[in-house]
Nucleic acid binder design. Structure first.
Length: 890
RNA sequence: GGGCGAUUGGCUCAGUCGGUUAGAGCGCACGGUUCACAUCCGUGAGGUCACUGGUUCGAAUCCAGUAUCGCCCACCA
């Protein structure tokens, strides 16, 4: 029974093909793990790093999706019990930032709406963006199990958050206390150290006189101590001046007092070893409520801390005449007044680092307040040990050092946020000051300490840092804290794939919380990808207008082409440049595959005979090459070397299969007098090879391979034995054919040599010219004869004449098969003389080098025998080649 | 101030725990209307692997140092 020949479209139309293919996968329910795992299968689980809900996906998300999807599809084909669980992060502060901006455009604000209506508005906003994000992942080909899609603000996450927080509290790892935290006066919330990003800036350092107190308590106009500061406005909160205990300049002053300008406050002069004598004047003004160093010093000396800035960083009532001014206005005003009084005695430029809010860029203000903290040292120790002892591996490995360094110097995590969008801290205050923490969704029954009824308690209004719920993600998504079947089956997970930029923010927190809460490493491998940069190696940013939008790329060149461009030439942890040339390369490769398939399907012999006889050299060779490529690709995917894998499949598909095999297959198929059975054999080999390539390539380029698979399945059921490629098994190991590979190598060398001869001799590309060959020996002659039909077509030479001891042209090519030169017609076109002489001297150089090497006794004695032997063989070959080149003419 | 990484043809990158002639894509030059593909095919030019020293029979690869670039961390006013 013959299948009618199918006609593939002349051009691959990704925009038309991809949505249709994706729908077929969904219809087949291809992305969901089986209801029960196959016996003997290993679980393979990736939990998707949840993108922010705040907007559309950018190119970094496309990279994440591509890498994860490739790995997941590979494992699915391997027959693993594979789950890729997708989700979205509520991204507290970022989401509020975006929504606030939208509200501002509408003339509304957080304040005008109030907490409840604001949160309603947020849910409405994010339900739209969540849809968009899911749709975009599907366009990229993400084979995630959408039925398990999660959100960090869904009820499951909320429950996990309450449980996790309560367990940390019960273990004494959560505390509430007064401390100097990073405050963003614009976002109006605490931020963590990680969200406080330091930038180098050139500021000014001013030197100010503080007059000393006289015995009558008034400032002495003639005696002072000079202090240096970069933040004059904090002067209002000064409560001391500090000097180094061994600084002789100030020794006499320690114990006395200075008088604070404007406010008249008495400032004790204290001695503290942390003061650097050589910096500034050697005397430091101490503002405990607005500087971390000063705060620490104040603790040592039991100094008062006076807050002089309000939430929005304006001078508060404690600031006297400067009340109500913004901190930077106040700075100028204070400097002006100091100039008036003559107490500003120096100002000069000063290189310094200034902390800014990661989200909005505002200069962070250290602020003294009562906050929730997680005591992280005990958590960090375990997280560190897991990596040190190899239970979790980080790729690339050098990030293990970065991780360790951070874990070793970790500070407590200020985890409360004065925001609305997020998980409210499950803590209740009792009028008597007691704190009750509970994981009960409805709150506690009463105060845990004094038993006062629940009605008297009020819940904490602070919410948790977004990264707290993200830190639970690998297990909260699987049902934790319940012992769900998914948790039992899929946890711990396998690979955590994400960008190195959130190693601390996220990976470290997952490790710490995961180990504490589940007593297991949440994943065995962390794969960190690099950042995508624009042409020229610069950062992509919307303001620079040099971003690559993944979705418009998909529309333009297709998801496969984009995916290929993102992965090829990349290595983990290294940034990579996404250039137009690279995108073109992906598009070209997609096109190449499509056309190769179009050729193969169009070349199907009709009617199709039974296969029979020996497979041709081309067929045996490509099978062997694909076997090698399969082994290599498998190895590379197993160690997550995506860039290497992409190169492997690209090379075998383009160079081996298309450039050589298909051209040789054409010869076999079109050869006059070929038997139908042989044609069938060759075509089957072509179809089988195509099937293998499709399977090898499917993880990275799922759409085009699936589309071709559909066609191939109809034409060659043996080559495409299952309905959908997405569920096809990964190619297995097949035997290599060393003989065929060697035979091909010699043949290809001959073809290349002859092509080169033609070009150099100026033979017209379309011209058929005779070729004369003096075979190296009888075996070579036999092999040449049996492969003559290939050489003829591939090198466009006809006829091929085998000779012995003939007079030869000066234009020859020499190889292991023998020496060849173009026949009479071409000889007349010779444009360069002495090619043979040049070849001989080239061979002589090689011979000389090898002779020297092999004469070196320390080489022959110390190098491994196999290496020495290889060099001996090579020398023999070159000597033979020289013999043949020289022939009888010398 | 600490730490990490990079440095390979004009550009972007590979280079398999050292093996002697360093690869690919793009770009470039030349040639091509061969019935899958010009998003293509063929041929070619182009690299003393940043520098210096060391280890070794042998170094792009290992070690030390230098330079340049990049990144991360960091409480000196």
């Amino acid at each position: 029974m013959e299948t009618p020949r199918r006609q593939m479209a002349a051009r691959y139309d990704a925009a038309a093909v991809e949505p249709d293919v994706y729908q077929r996968w969904l219809d087949a329910d291809a992305f969901r793990p089986a209801p029960t795992p196959d016996p003997g299968s290993q679980p393979f689980v990736i939990i998707q790093p949840p993108p922010n809900v705040t907007g559309a996906l950018h190119i970094g998300h496309a990279l994440t999706a591509t890498v994860e999807d490739s790995i997941v599809r590979y494992h699915r084909m391997r027959g693993d019990d594979t789950l890729w669980l997708p989700g979205v992060d509520h991204s507290g502060i970022a989401a509020q930032f975006v929504l606030d901006r939208i509200l501002a455009e509408e003339g509304e604000s957080r304040a005008s709406l109030g907490r409840e209506r604001y949160l309603e508005r947020m849910w409405q906003f994010i339900s739209e963006t969540r849809e968009v994000i899911g749709g975009q992942h599907r366009r990229l080909g993400a084979s995630a199990d959408w039925s398990r899609e999660r959100f960090t603000m869904d009820e499951g996450s909320a429950r996990a958050v309450r449980t996790a927080f309560t367990r940390l509290w019960d273990a004494g790892l959560v505390y509430r206390g007064e401390a100097l935290i990073n405050w963003c006066p614009r976002c109006l919330t605490t931020i963590s150290d990680l969200e406080n990003v330091h930038r180098d800036e050139t500021g000014t350092i001013w030197t100010i006189r503080y007059h000393l107190e006289r015995s009558d308590g008034t400032p002495d106009p003639d005696a002072w101590i000079s202090v240096a500061t970069t933040r004059p406005e904090t002067l209002l909160g000064d409560t001391a001046v500090a000097v180094h205990p061994e600084d002789e300049r100030y020794a006499a002053l320690v114990g006395r007092h200075a008088i604070l300008p404007f406010l008249g406050r008495r400032l004790p002069i204290v001695a503290d070893e942390h003061v650097e004598r050589t910096f500034g004047t050697g005397a430091v003004k101490i503002t405990p409520a607005h500087d971390p160093d000063d705060y620490a010093l104040a603790q040592r000396h039991a100094l008062e801390a006076i807050t002089v800035l309000d939430e929005e960083a304006r001078v508060n009532a404690a600031g006297g005449e400067f009340f109500g001014r913004d901190r930077f206005e106040a700075r100028e005003a204070i400097l002006d007044r100091l100039r008036e009084t003559g107490d500003l005695i120096a100002e000069k430029p000063h290189a310094m680092v200034v902390g800014h809010c990661d989200r909005c860029g505002t200069v962070v203000e250290p602020r003294l307040s009562v906050q929730w903290f997680i005591r992280v040292q005990p958590l960090a120790e375990r997280a560190l040990a897991s990596v040190r002892e190899g239970r979790t591996k980080i790729l690339p490995a050098h990030f293990e050092k970065v991780y360790a360094h951070w874990m070793e110097n970790i500070h407590d995590w200020a985890v409360g946020r004065q925001l609305w969008w997020g998980h409210r801290i499950p803590a209740w205050f009792c009028p008597d000051g007691h704190i009750t923490v509970t994981d009960e969704v409805d709150g506690p029954d009463g105060c845990a300490e004094c038993g006062r009824p629940a009605l008297d308690l009020t819940q904490e209004t602070d919410i948790l840092d977004t990264w707290f719920s993200s830190g639970l993600w690998p297990f909260s998504t699987l049902g934790w804290p319940d012992e769900t079947p998914d948790l039992a089956r899929f946890y711990p997970t396998s690979v955590m794939e994400t960008g190195y930029d959130i190693l601390f923010f996220w990976v470290a927190r997952m490790m710490m919380l995961g180990l504490f809460l589940t007593d297991a490493e949440p994943f065995h491998t962390v794969y960190l990808h690099g950042m995508i940069r624009a042409e020229g190696g610069v950062k992509m940013s919307k303001t620079k207008g040099n971003t690559v939008d993944p979705l418009s790329m998909v529309a333009e060149i297709g998801a496969d082409a984009l995916r290929f461009a993102l992965v090829s030439g990349s290595s983990p942890g290294s940034d990579m440049r996404l250039t137009q040339a690279k995108l073109d390369g992906g598009r070209n490769f997609t096109n190449k595959l499509w056309n190769a398939a179009r050729f193969v399907l169009g070349a199907r012999p009709e009617p199709m005979a039974e296969s029979g006889g020996e497979p041709s050299l081309a067929a045996r060779w490509i099978a062997s090459r694909l076997s090698e490529a399969t082994e290599r690709a498998t190895r590379q995917l197993d160690v997550l070397d995506l860039g290497g894998y992409a190169a492997t499949v690209y090379d075998v598909a383009w160079s081996d299969y298309c450039d050589w095999f298909l051209e040789m297959a054409k010869v076999d198929l079109r050869r006059e007098g070929a038997r139908d059975a042989d044609r069938a054999t060759t075509w089957s080999a072509a179809a089988a090879g195509l099937g293998t390539i499709l399977r090898l390539l499917h993880p990275l380029m799922p759409f085009v391979t699936e589309a071709i698979w559909t066609e191939l399945r109809d034409a060659a059921p043996d080559a495409a034995p299952v309905p959908l490629l997405v569920t096809a098994p990964w190619p297995g190991a097949t035997p290599r054919a060393a003989a065929a590979e060697d035979a091909f190598a010699d043949l290809a060398a001959m073809v290349r040599g002859v092509r080169n001869l033609r070009t150099e001799s100026g033979v017209a590309a379309s011209a058929w010219v005779p070729l004369v060959v003096e075979a190296a020996n009888a075996d070579a002659a036999a092999r040449l004869e049996s492969a003559a039909h290939y050489v003829e077509t591939l090198a466009r030479v006809r006829p091929i004449e085998l000779v012995e001891d003939a007079e030869r042209s000066e234009q020859v090519v020499a190889g292991r098969l023998g020496v060849a030169w173009l026949g009479r017609d071409a000889a007349a076109d010779e444009v360069s003389a002495g090619r043979r002489a040049a070849q001989i001297s080239e061979v002589d150089v090689g011979i000389a080098r090898l002779e020297t090497l092999l004469a070196n006794e320390s080489f022959t004695a110390r190098a491994p025998a196999a290496v020495v032997e290889r060099e001996r063989v090579r020398l023999d070959e070159l000597r033979e080649q020289r013999e043949r080149l020289v022939g009888g003419s010398e």
